[in-house]
Design a protein around this nucleic acid. Structure first.
Lengths: 83, 83
DNA sequence: TGTATTTATCGGATATGGCGCATAGACTCA
DNA sequence: TGAGTCTATGCGCCATATCCGATAAATACA
């Protein structure tokens, strides 16, 4: 349902996945958002200094939404090592 | 549980609410994140050009998490006008 | 009312986004 | 193999985030 992301690379990966699911090229997504293909590329590769408004524009064009939620536990192998 | 935001002002409002629930001043939150009080202020007032990394740092310090979800319907009065 | 805390804002400096324009690699497919 | 598409990257430009230092404005509270 909703995918968490804690760093820009994860955000970029989420966006790339969503874009491909919509069968859009970076160029086409850029057109929908008023951004350049280069800018889409930068976001997807995890540009940490991308602007919030840019991120929101991309999410909106992909019919996605930004959400803020309490940190959920991530049961990584490391956290389970003592069980 | 998770609050949606579609523009920088809403994001800022969410952060301010969470900060106050943690009983932190902008100064204290700045200390936790390595950001200046001024920067926290800018984010909370809805700076659209804030950086993603800055946003993520603030969310992390507040034990919050960024999530991406499909757009949920928002039943505004306008959308209901024809019913 | 007066004082302390909190938040918003200013000037200057530095770094970087996103723009236009362009191209180099990758990859797909005929 | 070659053409077409897609993604990453380059340069110059302007705008602006964030930094430092400082202060004004707003708010809380005794």
């Amino acid at each position: 349902m909703s995918d968490p992301a804690r760093d820009p690379k994860q955000i970029g990966a989420l966006i790339r996945r969503a874009r491909k699911q919509s069968a859009l090229s970076q160029q086409q997504l850029g057109a929908k958002t008023g951004l350049r293909q280069e800018t889409i590329s930068l976001i997807e590769t995890g540009n940490p200094a991308a602007r919030i408004e840019t991120l929101l524009a991309v999410l909106s064009a992909l019919d996605l939404e930004f959400q803020v939620a309490p940190r959920s536990k991530d049961w990584s192998r490391d956290m389970l090592k003592d069980f």
